[in-house]
Amino acid sequence: MQYLLLIYSEPATEASAQSQMDAEMAEWFAYDEAIRKSGVYVDGNALQPTATATTLRLKDGERVVTDGPFAETREVLGGYYLVDVPDLDTALDWAAKCPGARYGSMEIRPITVFDQG
């Protein structure tokens, strides 16, 4: 099954010390390398901050484009991994290893498989 591991965190309000940022980046690089080598990795990306987001809706066929994310919440989506694993427990194991689980929270969503039959 494919699962999207969504990485949520609260946006940093102030810049952290360079040494701390380096340590965090090292954790992310280590995780990224581990998940890519494991064979479960399908895709993964970090997202630009929500300030760069644009929301689009169609109202009566007309595009309504607005600045910012759809809803204001404390935790915002910062990136994701798409993994292919046998079951939820395995997906949870990968989510638990992700540094995002310590700095924020991980949401695990199965990918819908549309029945071809």
């Binding site: 099954m1 046998p86 079951d87 939820l88 427990d89 997906a91």
Partner: peptide
């Protein structure tokens, strides 16, 4: 079914 919750006994470490 949809979330893929497995039907198995967790390992000794789990």
């Amino acid at each position: 079914g949809a979330a893929g919750i497995p039907y198995r006994v967790p390992s000794a470490t789990e």
